[in-house]
Nucleic acid binder design. Structure first.
Length: 264
DNA sequence: TCGATCCTGTAG
DNA sequence: CTACAGGATCGA
């Protein structure tokens, strides 16, 4: 389930629970998650105390006292959280890191598509601006949009343009801005692009807020109340704007939900 | 720009 | 049984 807001929530919770912890043992359970890095190398590098935890796009970065950084990407089904004892780890464990105080940082991932690498730097090459940072201004969006021939939906999913938007929130933002997902992003006028910028920021902020509430509750689970999609996963249901049915199409191999009437 | 691919789980 | 899943990369 992780898109930017959920990753942000995971990150903030980790920051409260794992900052300053000393890693005494690292265990990569699924070899492929570190690819192309050798799992043994990742294990040997993941030591020392945790100095900083932050997020870039959908990556969680855990900075270690050695100066190295663990880069964790949860992909579709990953989750990263602290458990009281590593022996409590679930079956679908991709990696775990024991702390000096007996707790453990757990990387759980049902599908196992998530990744973890220990790298010498915060290498973000190629990622676009963070949509919730000051760098993401309406003018930045307008400039990059004008230069792209991609369909609007694929443009929003392209991490090189805007870092961190995913399938749900891309669809929601396009609906809020009344933009047709199939149409080239560059063919929208300035007013629409400004509306899109505002929609992205507002929707992500709201989603971060509800994700944080959901994740801060005891247990390791959630269920984001507070956020109910206007179009996502609502094929055939009534558009909240015009009452006509929401349609589902495929773009880039993934579902896009939109209202053909409101989003022209 | 498409389709396949990495995996497992669940809904229909 | 098939289709699909909130992600991203690769090669044709």
């Amino acid at each position: 389930m992780p898109e930017l807001p959920e990753v942000e929530a995971v990150c903030r919770k980790l920051r409260r629970e794992a900052m300053g912890a000393r890693i005494t043992e690292a265990n990569i359970q699924r070899r492929r998650i570190t690819s192309p890095q050798d799992p043994a190398e990742a294990e040997s590098l993941a030591s020392g105390t945790i100095d900083r935890i932050d997020r870039r796009a959908k990556n969680i970065r855990i900075r270690l006292s050695s100066g190295l950084t663990m880069h964790v990407h949860l992909r579709m089904t990953g989750n990263l959280y602290v458990i009281p004892d590593h022996r409590l780890r679930p079956l679908a464990t991709s990696a775990w890191f024991t702390f000096e105080d007996g707790r453990a940082l757990l990387f759980e991932d049902t599908r196992g598509l998530g990744t973890l690498q220990v790298r010498a730097d915060d290498d973000d090459a190629g990622l676009g601006p963070e949509p919730l940072s000051r760098a993401f201004t309406p003018d930045v969006l307008i400039r990059t949009a004008r230069a792209s021939k991609q369909p609007a939906k694929l443009f929003l999913l392209d991490q090189r343009r805007i870092a961190g938007l995913g399938n749900i929130y891309a669809a929601e933002a396009l609906h809020a801005a009344r933009i047709n997902p199939k149409r080239a992003i560059s063919r929208n006028n300035e007013a629409k692009l400004r509306a899109l910028h505002a929609a992205i920021v507002r929707i992500l902020r709201d989603a971060v807020r509800s994700a944080c509430i959901a994740y801060s509750r005891p247990g390791r689970f959630r269920e984001a109340e507070g956020f109910s999609p206007a179009v996502y996963d609502r094929e055939g249901e009534a558009c909240l704007g015009c009452g006509r049915p929401i349609r589902r199409i495929t773009q880039g191999g993934r579902s896009t939900y939109y209202c053909p009437h409101c989003q022209r």
